[in-house]
Design a protein around this nucleic acid. Structure first.
Lengths: 212, 212
DNA sequence: TAGAGCATAGTACTGATGGACTAGAGCGTA
DNA sequence: TACGCTCTAGTCCATCAGTACTATGCTCTA
């Protein structure tokens, strides 16, 4: 287990659950031997920290008031040089890809072990990244034959909007296609997910971590 | 801070997130001075432990494959004498009441602090309970003027089923009322939550922690 | 007792949703 | 090139969802 990298580093944990923050802090201090930990219970609070004092950021993307992945951008803008590792309860490959695109250095599932967490931070601190394949290794039971594999790219896009509670008409407008086409996609989504209506599809997507 | 009670006790943590389990374990061992910790990543795995070795159970009710609160029953049946404390990411008073009814000794929000966690376990080990008012104290920003206060008991019941993705017809059957009455309740729910359709209502209910 | 609030349930209507088709355009591959 | 897949878009139809009323019975309170 590589631990040297974290030893002189200061880590910022952004998560709305105090218990999780405290637990993670203890893991990072004791197993990872981090120099120091700062805690923020929201994106807003995270932005109050000075860039210079933070070496790496652990960012939960399931927090109230933030549309999942959207929380990355402001943090990325504020801490231009510090690598960001996304913490998520899901293994959605789309969210992962999105996180990567937005400049995150890693995407770690909360079901990962403490050792994996420490290893990932160290890898990122060495300038590496920690995505997909690593996450797959961490969670072989997920993702294997994920339902999201059954969905085409366009269907996933429609599913995103559907999961925001939007009606077909709005989805059509936002994706610039006819309402009919949206219907075709929604139908395909329902049958792919085994849902009998869009609300059930939302639930399944949430449960399977297809969308955040 | 009362800590004596936990010191000779063995605690079973049931949560699907390894990171959270490990963090909580460290909190309970170091701050709470617990004698020992067992971990289970599912209800199923929890049932493998022997009743005699477990003094208190911390049970996450947001785990895949289990319909929230329903996970309590099998654990309750298996560990007849050990108190159960529910861990939840939401402060839904209904879920809390339901948990109490199903025999849980406490309901703690994950946003609670480590000290509150330890104090709650000790209180429960002394034969007490830890519900609502304690949780409110732990999370004053929630619950204060919660949207769920705008909903009547019957509306909350309908909302529960609605949040499971069920159509009006099924809700009517399950709650033994006419489909028309369901519609009346759903309409009231939508306007109370400021939602424009049931999918949006689901999202708002989830976000506000009205249902689990 | 009168009124407020809730739960129930009905009618009537509009719009949204979902299924079952057909069909053409574009793209990559055997 | 031919096939398969995806995306697009259309029609038709049945059902579902949501709104706007009216109305009755119940309970609690002023």
């Amino acid at each position: 287990m590589e631990r040297r990298n974290m030893q002189n580093k200061h880590i910022l944990i952004v998560d709305d659950h105090s218990l999780f923050r405290t637990g993670l802090k203890m893991i990072l201090m004791q197993i990872g031997k981090a120099r120091g930990i700062s805690e923020a219970n929201s994106i807003k609070e995270a932005l109050d920290f000075s860039e210079s004092g933070v070496d790496v950021i652990l960012l939960d993307i399931q927090m109230p008031g933030i549309n999942g992945i959207d929380g990355i951008k402001p943090v990325r803008d504020r801490f231009k040089t510090s690598p960001i590792i996304i913490l998520s309860a899901s293994n959605d490959p789309n969210a992962m890809a999105e996180a990567k695109k937005l400049g995150a250095s890693g995407y770690l599932n909360k079901a990962a072990s403490a050792d994996e967490m420490v290893a990932s931070i160290n890898r990122v601190l060495r300038g590496g990244t920690c995505f997909s394949s690593d996450v797959d290794k961490a969670n072989p039971q997920h993702n294997a034959n994920s339902l999201s594999n059954n969905l085409t790219p366009r269907q996933l896009e429609v599913l995103m909007y559907l999961c925001e509670g939007k009606p077909n008409k709005l989805i059509a407008r936002e994706l610039e296609m006819s309402e009919n086409t949206v219907r075709v996609h929604v139908s395909a989504i329902l049958s792919a997910l085994g849902a009998s209506n869009r609300s059930e599809a939302m639930l399944i997507a949430q449960r399977e971590g297809i969308t955040v």
